[in-house]
Design a protein around this nucleic acid. Sequence first.
DNA 1: ATGCCTCCCCGAGGGAGA
Length: 259
Amino acid sequence: MKIATFNINGIKARIHALGDWLDEAQPDIALLQEVKSVNEGFPREHFENRGYNVYTHGQKSFNGVAILSKLPLENVQIGLPGDDSDEQARWIEATVIGRQALHICGLYLPNGNPAPGPKYDYKLSWMKRLYNRAQDLIQSEMPALMAGDYNIIPQPEDAATPQIWTDDALFLPQSRDAFRRIVALGFTDAFRARDPSPGQYSFWDYQGGAWNRNNGIRIDHILMTPSCADMLVDCQIDKHVRDQEKPSDHVPVWVKLDN
DNA sequence: ATGCCTCCCCGAGGGAGA
């Protein structure tokens, strides 16, 4: 089963680029972030016509996550547990039944800039809630993965110019520590399990010719529980998608699982 | 980067992104 994560930066602006990539990459499941649309405005038919079931957790203008799945999903849940007052649409999870059940979580972790400040506080408290959900997933022992835009540069080698990011919420020690604590619960970073080399990025800013200068960062991650990691066959970043017409500033990252 | 783009809101120009 091929499962991808893709921050599309606006579903309406990305109809064609996303459609082209789906046709080419043929993922069984695509976890989308930054949909930037309410559920009613999501162009479901573009994806239903391609054989996908569409599950959305939208919000006006900002954030928003969705799942496109060729297989029907069960137990679809929206919203990261731990704060009922949190209105931001950043989490969707579900169970997919292949040869064996797999739990999939799509997330859009808060950016957190400027740091320090209330947005950074929100990022850290969201990561605390993510830690709790991640711990439950490990303990449940059902194979599970959490994929999405983590807005975390895990290591210096995950940025072309790490010195630019030293005071940024994506790279501050506290941010990276929180990410590392989650991974240390027993998760495997799917991409790093397959490719330890530096210079592998999933985001290039629209500004300053970042793509042409390959001034990128790796912030889109797929974390797998041990029983999920046992099924890992491949993990790739579809970097070429950044060269499309009207690209997102992120590109897809996908895993192939033998499940 | 005191933000050089692009998205969204809408119907101008501001907020957000990373």
